[in-house]
Design a protein around this nucleic acid. Structure first.
Lengths: 203, 203
DNA sequence: CGGTTAACGGGACCCCTATCCCGTTAGTGG
DNA sequence: CCACTAACGGGATAGGGGTCCCGTTAACCG
């Protein structure tokens, strides 16, 4: 149930271990797409990945921790954003990437699974917090640059602005469960930008 | 597993049935507060409510449907909002009521449970959609009144404005899992209002 | 290339949860 | 007040997910 102790003996991160990890994480994502988080069992993951059930339990312990590990893996594949020199373009790129992530079957299913897992597992919640903290921080830089260029008021809080852009999209996805369209992404950008230009993001 | 057929024979909504329903829903909420949705089992609900396990299965069938029913019950207790004659006041009241709902142990636990249940059960998802659709519609009226008074631009979309106010709060609660404060509620109002005054909510 | 041992795999076991059967209780209508 | 039956309750059963034990495999190191 615990991650195996790394204190006694030597670690072996070599070939087989890495192969097993990849197979298990892949199988997990497949099952999430097909059955969602509620339909994810250690049993199925093991069978699908072609590994022993015991192995999955030993290394991950539970489905929430499995999903948390998957999220950490995806967090590392974070694609760097473009900096076009125009805030509206940059922020639209951000909103659209959120929309795509949420719409895309594979990534969307994983995101929703982590959100579900986070409600019952602190490790999954941490993975989620870390993931978004990093994403927000990355995108906040384009706001800072826009402030330097004079496109937005001095002192505009970049992190809060980025949050404000994706919030309506996730709100529709998870809370009100309304369809999320590209149109929603575009409107969120223009609305948030209107508030920002009016100085609403300056504390 | 199905709701018992109401076609053959007579329905008996009288004393005992209503008492059982109330006891079960109460027990459900208690368990949600203590253990969350993942720790909710039909067994515990039955035991806690002091009713037969069979009864709970017969009338609700699963925990997501139990939670969905609880949500419908709470939706009917929807408290009407005040209309102070000042948009900012009204919207602040809205944001604060969301903040309180999310912060309050009992209601907050239930809300998060329904959100979790909605990811794996269509009935729970429906309950959620219905609940929010109604709430949004109710509060949208204060926006319409403000437009009539000339406080906001003609054509402002009330529903979207209300969504925009609560979105950041739920976003923090469910997605980024950051703490939600009254300060967040206040900022959300002022930012959304700034965008609205700039005409960002006029299609 | 061969010994050492971390890591994996198969299968038996166990507990918890869902389901079923049937006897009992108590609303309902006359 | 009585017959009727919808709805409830207890207990026995079964199925599936999780745990454990121990033999096997293959990475690491000299």
């Amino acid at each position: 149930m615990e991650q195996p102790s790394r204190l006694a003996g030597t670690v072996r991160p070599g070939g087989r271990t890495a192969r097993v990890r990849a197979a298990v994480l892949d199988a997990t994502q497949d099952i999430l797409v097909e059955h969602g988080f509620h339909g994810l069992t250690m049993d199925q993951v093991a069978a699908r990945a072609g590994v022993g059930k015991t192995t999955v339990y030993r290394r991950w312990g539970s489905t929430p921790r499995l999903v948390a590990d998957l999220m950490k893996e995806l967090a590392n594949q974070s694609s760097p954003h473009a900096d076009t020199g125009d805030v509206e373009c940059d922020l639209l790129a951000n909103a659209v990437s959120v929309w795509e992530a949420v719409t895309d079957g594979r990534l969307g299913a994983t995101l929703q699974a982590v959100i579900a897992a986070a409600t019952c597992d602190e490790e999954a919640a941490d993975a989620l917090r870390t993931f978004f903290a990093r994403r927000i921080e990355e995108w906040a830089t384009v706001v800072d640059l826009a402030v330097k260029r004079g496109e937005l008021p001095e002192g505009t809080d970049g992190g809060e602005l980025i949050r404000a852009i994706s919030a309506p999209l996730y709100y529709r996805l998870v809370v009100t469960r309304e369809p999320v369209t590209r149109w929603d992404a575009e409107r969120s950008v223009s609305r948030t930008l209107a508030a920002a230009r009016a100085g609403a993001f300056v504390p």
